[in-house]
Design a protein around this nucleic acid. Structure first.
Lengths: 162, 162
DNA sequence: TTCTCTCAAGAAAATGATTTTCCACAGGAC
DNA sequence: GTCCTGTGGAAAATCATTTTCTTGAGAGAA
């Protein structure tokens, strides 16, 4: 990541200029997201922040995440039933490993060609997108595929390699 | 749609050969999905089926949808918090209108070029995908955009045209 | 036909992620 | 210091979905 420190300070400044108070809890939540590379869930953020603030409530995490989301400071990424949070607001595709559940990013340019070509005939005006590509990451392929997550079995059932 | 009648019979046959009983409720749920063009939710399917079976329970709808999903007869499509059901199992992108909430399909070919190019360098082995493009459908653009759904505002806030 | 045996439907309770409510408190404005 | 609004935390509420439990219906065996 680029200069994460400066980036964090910039986000903090945005919070303040929008009239929000800068509490220790909010700082902790924001920096957890900014320094994380795993697109954490609310629960994961809560666990991490609770290491420093044992009294923090999950409700506070959710409230703060909604503030950050509505200010356009973090992006929400919905994955089968629960939300993950992404510090990167630029729309970009995600690669989701069905075995280790890792979520990787793909560069945003990947999408632009397709969207222009594909949408030109539909009359649809695209504003943003949500792309998830499910499969096996390089590591999990290397380890062999015999142990695919049974939770993902229903999804795999209906899939063919694309 | 092609010959929907024959298609429905084919699905019914698959249910039977897998050892599932063919109850009136299941027939009604399956045909609701097959004849629908709106990618209905469980609740919408329930409402529709309840017109013929006033005693049906929402739990029955959910149980049946899980059976159909696990047999690979219908596909589940997750949209901000709730599931929609699609009779078309071939992975294909969806166009979601942020104003009228309609969900349209894009042909599957749209994706293939991109996936090959984009993934070739990552080592990721794609199995299937989930693509949603959010924006305004042709009708809503024609009606003017002043009345964008306030519920979608948080999303719009962080978007730029892609 | 009658007796099982299993599957399915329906009602109600349970679940899990998220949101709301309510109250006490803390920081800034006056 | 006093007021005022924003905030954190606990607990209750919500919403979609799943599970549990009980009853009944259908298929097959005797």
């Amino acid at each position: 990541m680029e200069n994460t420190k400066g980036f964090l300070e910039h986000l903090v400044e945005r919070l303040r200029t929008q009239g929000y108070r800068l509490t220790p809890q909010r700082m902790a939540i924001l920096s957890t997201i900014v320094y994380s590379h795993i697109h954490p869930t609310a629960e994961e953020i809560y666990q991490q922040v609770a290491a420093d603030f044992p009294m923090i409530s999950l409700a506070t995490v959710y409230k703060t995440l909604n503030v950050l989301k509505n200010l356009g400071i973090v992006a929400e990424l919905q994955m089968d039933g629960s939300s993950h949070y992404d510090r990167d607001l630029t729309p970009h595709p995600h690669l989701v490993c069905v075995q280790c559940h890792s979520i990787a990013d793909l560069p945003p340019e990947t999408m632009s060609k397709m969207s222009q070509e594909a949408l030109s005939t539909t009359g649809f005006r695209a504003l943003w997108y949500d792309i998830k590509i499910y499969g096996l990451c390089a590591q999990c392929q290397a380890q062999g595929e015999e142990t695919a997550d049974p939770l993902m079995a229903p999804c795999l059932f209906q899939s063919q390699t694309i």
